[in-house]
Amino acid sequence: MEIGIILLTLAAYLFGAIPFGLLVAKSRGVNIREHGSGNIGATNVFRVVGKGWGIFTFTLDALKGFIPAFFFSKIGELPFEWGVLFGMAAIIGHTFPVYLKFKGGKGVATSAGMLIGIAPVAVAVGFLFWVICLVLSRIVSLASIIAAIAVGITVWVEGEKPVAVKIALSILSLLVVWLHRANIKRLMNGTESRFGKKKEAKV
């Protein structure tokens, strides 16, 4: 069983490391790392390549978290909580992809996908906070940070999940906030870009 867990964890990491944002943008003739924020995530694809391609990228990145979290424990006939490990491995893969010298995205979409597979109530609360914050501020990074914090709190309030699962999801929330540290500096300086305000023309 130990070998099976190691192999599933490795598979989750490698699956999560697939840079869908980079590949989607490249299919449109754009090197996403040279435009916008330079990030390979769905938000930058949305801004630089277009709305539909951004949504498509978000869906693919979310599936990178959902599939390992929801299905891999079933494949290995393992208890539910192992899905957290596999989902976390996918998020680490997205954030630190071996294919891109460990320079990846911020893991918001992949984290959301993982949470849908593990804690759907928490992700629903997080999504609600994300929408409200985005509507009020029009700042995607701020909405993502608030949503991550909301998820981290919700997992301790709802349900009868094992403490290990709650701790893991809280760590995930903190990771998402930490990965937005550059955005937090821009927010404090008042220089963070707002959704719908183009800083660069489409390529």
Rank of each mutant, 00 (worst) to 15 (best):
F127W: 15
W130H: 13
L136M: 10
F102G: 11
H94F: 12
G87C: 03
S111P: 15
T110D: 09
A124K: 13
S137A: 10
G87E: 06
A90P: 01
T95E: 11
W130R: 12
P120A: 02
K101E: 09
F86C: 06
P120R: 00
F129W: 11
G93C: 12
A119T: 13
G113V: 09
I118H: 08
T95Q: 07
V108S: 01
H94L: 13
L85V: 03
G104V: 09
V98P: 13
V123G: 06
G105L: 02
M114W: 08
A112P: 12
V135F: 04
K101P: 14
L85M: 03
A109K: 03
F86E: 00
G117M: 04
W130Y: 13
H94D: 03
L136R: 01
T110G: 07
T110S: 10
H94R: 10
F86H: 00
K106L: 01
G105E: 01
F102S: 08
F129K: 10
K101R: 15
L100M: 15
Y99N: 04
F129D: 08
G126V: 14
G113L: 05
G105D: 01
C133T: 14
C133N: 12
K103S: 05
H94S: 05
G105A: 02
V98E: 14
A112K: 14
L85Y: 04
V121G: 14
M88S: 14
L100I: 11
V131I: 00
A109G: 00
A122T: 14
F86R: 02
G87W: 04
L115S: 08
K103M: 05
A119E: 15
A109I: 01
S111W: 06
A109F: 05
G113K: 05
G107Y: 01
L115V: 05
G113F: 07
A90Y: 06
G117V: 02
I91Q: 05
G87R: 04
V125L: 05
W130E: 12
G87D: 09
V121Q: 14
W130A: 09
V123Q: 01
K101L: 06
T110R: 02
S111H: 12
A109S: 00
P97G: 09
I118L: 07
G93S: 11
P97F: 03
L100F: 11
G117K: 02
G113H: 08
G87F: 06
F102L: 07
G104N: 02
G126S: 09
F129V: 07
T95N: 07
F96C: 01
